[in-house]
Nucleic acid binder design. Structure first.
Length: 647
DNA sequence: ACTAACTGTCATCGT
DNA sequence: AGACGATGACAGTTA
């Protein structure tokens, strides 16, 4: 998931950069939220919740190419990633995406305050023409002539604290975690490093796109577009034609360029403090809004490869040169109309990966503290159900025991709390892998609360509990919660590990814990029992799930066989009817033929005494009807009986 | 009170 | 030998 997110984010960021360079302001947050809808569908697979996958094994194969055979979701996921890598190696800058949110207009610095962190736009329907509505008109009225175009990406990409893929890609995130141990930095901020890195990159690139600093030469707009479109002669013919059509509309108002589904407030960022404002607004945005956008926006991953060659392949300078012209709400705005965007939406974006990632490496971790990611998808996409209490505490899951059994662990990965001190040493050694998206349900050991709260187990009935607010303190949150027996035992024996930790840590780590902490024999026994019971609990859940699946499969097969039986019976009846009809026809034909034949005496043949036989060579011959052997046999029998009687 | 469904746990077996 | 997964059986809980 993280990898998919990363790719997606990269692509969108790159597209955003490109569009910003030509003066188009893009709201990618809503798109990013919507992108995960299909991923959610993947994650809510039927067996995902019960699949126990030793993802600590995957830690050693961060590329993820070694997929546990029992995790089809991961298999699918890594296969997709591998395909993406292969596509990457081809050098073709393509990434199938679709953007549904666009905004093309300028905003003055004074509008920033007016716009504010509104959240209404993201909950609008897909028809972007109606969503911005009045605001579009207002903004168009406020369009300053000297307004600067600023590319803004709302950092709403909720970064899961850990996932197999993310661990492989965001090394710097791990570095941040190490640093986090030194400084009590909220994990919430740290977990979104990927997004922040991209923003940092954008911040650096914005200088290039800033018309105030980068005044492109005044070149004819049509020539620019000709250059632009000529780069995709084969794949963008439609786009070309569309653009040509749109060129006739160059005189239209700039507001017409707002094609669809524009999250106006999110997209409007003035030139002053672009990213700061963006980040602040991102923080203030309610998560529920992200959910709304997540459900509202659709995303396509099936974009035709042919369309993948486009803006991403544009020379950087060419795009830059367009900046000033387009930003001045010239007639080019008409070119950026809906139909054109539909084409552009499918353009590939991976061409700049290397360059961008290189810039991402230079992220300043300190910046992460100022930014937040609403991660409108983390909770929803991961749980597929009620948010587990304490899900917000998965934080340390980004750095702790979210390992294999996280398959049944559920929920998510909202990162916001302080990691458990007792497990800090493991936080640094275990790669964070968040498989919460593969989880459907709660289990005692799966509650994310246990990551941070040693010796605390969420009882099963905790599923029905309302999700706790994320800003709750750890202490009272768990005091009023019923503890499992193992948690009570662990507390009684002062075991500094939560049940979840005990269960989920790799065996090597577990043995090391047993050896290095100087536990008493009772404590060791309890630790082993807790681990055994926890694993067995998950195994039982998995087993039951498989059993139900098997039952379901058998029921389906029974239904299928019933249907097949009925179909065969009908075929049999039909065949019998056909055979009967054919037999009657043959009999009738035989009678007709025989009636027209004459014997040596010139008399017609008796149909009862003669019949027609069709030979293998196709010849038809008249044969006398053989008396049934039964009659002879019966005669023989009667003879035998007579003889017996005589005897 | 009874029942079905769900869940945790134990014992056992195989890998 | 030990860890682990799978699974049947049993018991507790809950609706």
């Amino acid at each position: 998931m993280q990898i998919a997110k990363k790719y997606l984010t990269e692509g969108l960021i790159q597209l955003t950069i490109l569009l910003s360079l030509i003066g188009v302001r893009v709201d990618i947050d809503s798109y990013l939220s919507g992108y995960y809808t299909p991923l959610i569908e993947i994650n809510v697979g039927p067996s995902s919740a019960y699949t126990q996958t030793p993802f600590h094994n995957l830690r050693d194969t961060l590329d993820g190419y070694s997929v546990h055979p029992k995790c089809p979701e991961l298999d699918y996921f890594f296969a997709s990633r591998r395909l993406l890598d292969e596509v990457r190696t081809l050098g073709s800058p393509r990434f199938p995406t679709q953007l549904n949110a666009w905004l093309v207009h300028q905003v003055s610095a004074t509008d920033k305050a007016d716009c504010g962190p509104s959240t209404s736009n993201n909950t609008d329907t897909n028809s972007g023409l109606e969503s911005p509505g009045d605001e579009v008109r207002n903004d168009s009225e406020h369009l300053p002539d000297s307004g600067q175009e600023v590319c803004k990406t709302t950092p709403e990409l909720g970064q899961r604290p850990c996932s197999a893929g993310a661990c492989g890609f965001f090394k710097e995130e791990e570095d941040v975690k190490v640093k986090e141990e030194e400084e009590p930095v909220p994990l919430t901020q740290l977990a979104h490093s990927s997004t922040l890195e991209q923003e940092s990159l954008l911040e650096g690139i914005t200088a290039l796109s800033d018309p105030a600093r980068h005044h492109p030469p005044a070149i004819d707009i049509d020539q620019h577009w000709s250059n632009l479109l000529s780069l995709s002669v084969t794949d963008l013919d439609d786009l070309d034609s569309l653009v040509t059509e749109r060129l006739s509309d160059l005189g239209t108002d700039i507001t017409s360029a707002i094609s669809q589904d524009v999250s106006l407030h999110d997209a409007m960022v003035t030139s002053a403090g672009a990213f700061g404002v963006a980040s602040e607004r991102a923080e203030s945005r309610p998560v529920t809004q992200q959910q709304g956008t997540l459900l509202r926006l659709d995303s396509h991953s099936d974009a035709s490869p042919g369309m993948a060659v486009g803006l991403a392949a544009l020379p950087f300078a060419t795009v830059c040169n367009l900046t000033g012209n387009v930003s001045s709400h010239s007639a080019l705005g008409g070119c950026l109309d809906e139909a054109v965007f539909d084409q552009i939406n499918q353009l590939g974006l991976e061409g700049l990966d290397t360059q961008l990632m290189g810039s991402l490496e230079s992220i300043d971790p300190q910046v992460l503290e100022d930014l937040d990611s609403d991660s409108g998808l983390s909770l929803e996409s991961s749980s597929g159900g009620p948010v587990s209490p304490g899900s917000s505490e998965m934080s340390s899951s980004s750095s702790s025991y979210c390992e294999d059994e996280c398959g049944a662990t559920g929920y998510s990965s909202e990162v916001d709390s302080v990691p458990s001190k007792g497990i800090m040493e493991y936080n640094t050694t275990w790669s964070p892998i968040d498989l919460s998206e593969s989880v459907w349900h709660d289990h005692s050991y799966s509650s994310p609360a246990f990551f941070n709260q040693p010796s605390v187990t969420l009882p099963h009935k905790g599923i029905k509990e309302e999700p706790l607010s994320e800003d709750d303190d750890d202490g009272p949150r768990f005091d009023d919660r019923e503890l499992s027996r193992d948690e009570l035992r662990a507390r009684a024996l002062c075991i500094p590990f939560s049940v979840l930790q005990i269960v989920n840590m790799p065996v090597e780590e577990f043995l090391e814990v047993l050896d290095s902490h100087g536990f008493s024999p009772e404590q060791v026994t309890l630790l082993r029992d807790i681990r055994r019971r926890g694993k067995n609990k998950l195994a039982a859940q998995n087993c039951r799930k498989r059993k139900l699946d098997a039952i379901t499969g058998l029921q389906e097969e029974v239904e299928r066989l019933h249907a097949q039986r009925g179909r065969l019976l009908r075929e049999k009846q039909l065949t019998a009817k056909t055979m009967g009809a054919v037999g009657q026809q043959i009999k009738q034909l035989t009678r007709d033929v025989l009636a027209r034949l004459r014997d040596n005496s010139g008399r017609p043949l008796n149909p009862e005494r003669f019949t027609l036989q069709c030979g293998a060579n196709g010849r038809v011959v008249v044969q006398p009807v053989r008396r049934p052997a039964v009659s002879t046999s019966t005669g023989n029998k009667t003879d035998k009986r007579k003889k017996e009687k005589k005897q």
